[in-house]
């Protein structure tokens, strides 16, 4: 299947900081869910910015077969504008894409309904819990109907129960419109539960240390966490992470 975004032997150097990523090759097929796992400083977020088109590689090829508004990003923090209501925050990317305000607000309301925030349209970000704010951020990312959804450690600041609930929510939302999802995480379990494919990066500058295919169709039932397949996948990812760290040090 043709990829919607592909990185071929890319390298990213930052002035004064040296190489942050690469050489790194990676591609995403339409509708697949891929997790990027690696130690801190391995260049996971840099890779995500390349995929989003927010940054260009220093060397190598980046091919993006995506148009304006077809890529969405959810950052580690909800990143909501504090002066806007939840609905207006979700409507913002739609309005920036040229959709009239009234229509954008209606679509934003529907997106908030989909993430279970029907009663919080008018709430400001400061009035929302961490989990609710992240749901608004998800609704904003999905409102434009993206073909590629990039999640940069979106649940890192949340408690374990909220993390698990939001992971299920993301999978449920994915099953509605099936965008390709690439998410960065430090959590081996989260990667094994949510992704069909896990790409493990070495210690920085990140290269591919290994790739693990996770068995079972998506979205997975909650009981998947208790299966031998899940445990084996988590162990494989952990082993690959350890190998990746050793290979460099």
């Amino acid at each position: 299947m043709a990829s919607i975004v592909a990185l071929e032997q890319v390298e990213v150097d930052y002035p004064g900081r040296g190489r942050a990523l690469g050489p790194f090759s990676f591609s995403v097929a339409p509708g697949e869910i891929v997790a990027l796992v690696g130690p801190s400083g391995s260049g996971k977020s840099t890779a995500l910015r390349l995929l989003a088109g927010l940054e260009d590689p220093t060397r190598g090829d980046l091919e993006r077969n995506l148009g304006r508004g077809e890529t969405s990003v959810v950052f580690q923090a909800p990143t909501l504008a504090p002066w806007l209501s939840a609905q207006a925050n979700v409507a913002l990317p739609l309005e920036l894409s040229g959709i009239p305000k009234a229509e954008a607000l209606a679509q934003a309301g529907a997106a908030l309904d989909r993430v279970g925030l029907s009663s919080a349209w008018a709430a400001r970000p400061a009035q929302l819990s961490g989990g609710m704010a992240m749901r608004v951020s998800l609704a904003r990312a999905l409102a434009t109907g993206p073909k590629l959804l990039l999640l940069d450690e979106p649940f890192a600041a949340l408690d374990e129960i909220t993390r698990r609930t939001l992971a299920d929510d993301v999978l449920a939302l994915w099953s509605q419109s099936r965008p390709a999802i690439v998410f960065v995480t430090h959590s081996v379990e989260e990667a094994a539960y949510m992704a069909a494919r896990v790409v493990v990066l070495t210690k920085g500058p990140g290269r591919v240390a290994g790739e693990i295919a996770i068995p079972g169709d998506l979205p997975r039932p909650r009981a998947f966490r208790a299966t031998p397949g899940f445990r084996q996948a988590a162990e494989d990812i952990s082993a690959c992470l350890a190998q990746g760290a050793e290979a460099v040090s």
């Binding site: 910015r49 989003a52 088109g53 927010l54 304006r68 508004g69 890529t71 969405s72 990003v73 950052f75 923090a77 990143t79 504008a81 913002l92 990317p93 309005e95 920036l96 894409s97 434009t144």
Partner: peptide, 21 residues
């Protein structure tokens, strides 16, 4: 917020949109 700036980059907001919004 730099992440909000990136969001505006992502949706290719115009200079005027960026200043006003």
């Amino acid at each position: 917020d730099p992440d909000l700036e990136r969001l505006f980059d992502l949706y290719q907001a115009s200079r005027i949109q960026r200043v006003l919004r």
